[in-house]
Nucleic acid binder design. Structure first.
Lengths: 216, 216
DNA sequence: GTCTATATTGCGATAGAC
DNA sequence: GTCTATCGCAATATAGAC
């Protein structure tokens, strides 16, 4: 197990990821998987002990970056609430860019939790929500954010802004004229988060042409 | 067909709605449906010509309010962009309150479109996005919204704010201390939309204790 | 309209050859 | 480690009795 992990195994995970993400666990048959991966039916049982084992392997690989990013964000506790949230938003955008199917796995597990994935995702998201909620509450306390801000609702909004686009990307990319934007994903998060920040800020002074105005 | 629609038929739709919404079309068997509805297997074929026909009936019933709300919003063209978006946000919140499973059907159809539901939902959402996008662009043109606002990204953010909570409600209600809020759903949308409005506004003057400050 | 009984298909899993 | 062949089961759908 030093290097060169088994090829069939990795190929199977790579092929299964988009299939499970789009069609769901119940919507994908092991025959479909083996045709797509150009392997034999029995390989799934051999490597993963069945279809469910394969799904768990896919999910595990998908979820790995979440606790890592959260740890990085927690390590930034010396930053201001705004700084911490900004850093966190960038982390989330980076994860979505690296794992384009992650948001759909999470969404699927939220709506219909798996025995394996349900508890893991619940734990990860609980920590993420706690991180955002804490930063928002602290910002209200310091006067950085609006005094009438409800940190719970604002946490949900922020989560929506950071994740909705990636949960619904197939349709959004079809419907909206994003072709003119080269790096839609990272640009979206940057722009949307900047608007969100102004929304929660405590009555910002006019700053139309300031340094934060890097979008035209 | 004057009154009193068939009881078995309506009961079947009512029972199938949460099952399809949470487990997906492939994840629900007709046996499970018939047990839950306390009817016979053959009733599904009799009334809906099979499992897929039942799903289509459920979806049709779920989607009905969308074009209605959009028409109402379009009729408000005399309002300012802010007024139109506010009205639209209230409509969306009302729909989610009346149809708690709608957001999951839409999400499911976006990720894995059905031959029947895919085109309908794409059409509905295209119109919704166009409505929001147009209002945002107009607001930028009139100086009501920030000049550096990207209407496409802002449309996505708004859609996320209005819908994310309802797409992920099972987990969010588990994770966040919403119990202190009595009417979470409508309160969430009102609060989140208000924050969003400040976020897109063109440098609002300070108004900390103004009339919009109804949240404590 | 509702039921039983059944036809037919496709599923996941695995024994055993190589 | 990969294959073929097959088992056992659950799926949808429907014919036909009532």
């Amino acid at each position: 197990m030093i290097s060169l992990e088994n090829d069939t195994r990795l190929n199977l995970i790579a092929v299964a990821t988009p299939l499970f993400a789009t069609k769901g666990f119940a919507g994908v048959s092991i025959r479909e998987l083996t045709v797509a991966a150009q392997i034999n039916v029995s390989a799934i049982s051999y490597y993963f002990n069945g279809k469910e084992g394969l799904y768990q392997a896919v999910l595990k690989e998908q979820l790995a970056p979440i606790p890592e990013a959260l740890q990085l964000a927690k390590d930034r506790e010396s930053l201001s609430p705004t700084g911490r949230l900004t850093f966190y938003a960038e982390q989330v955008a980076g994860i979505h860019a690296r794992r384009p199917f992650l948001a759909r796995f999470i969404q699927s597990e939220i709506i219909n939790p798996t025995e394996y994935g349900g508890p893991i995702i619940e734990s990860h998201l609980a920590q993420a929500f706690h991180f955002m909620n804490t930063a928002l509450q602290e910002g209200v306390a310091t006067g950085e954010f609006r005094p009438d801000l409800d940190s719970t609702y604002a946490t949900i909004s922020l989560a929506g802004i950071l994740n909705f686009y990636f949960m619904t990307r197939p349709l959004i990319q079809k419907l909206l004229p994003l072709t003119k934007h080269t790096n839609s994903e990272s640009q979206y998060t940057a722009h949307a988060f900047r608007v969100y920040l102004q929304g929660i800020k405590n009555c910002p002074p006019a700053e139309i042409t300031g340094e934060s105005n890097k979008y035209t």
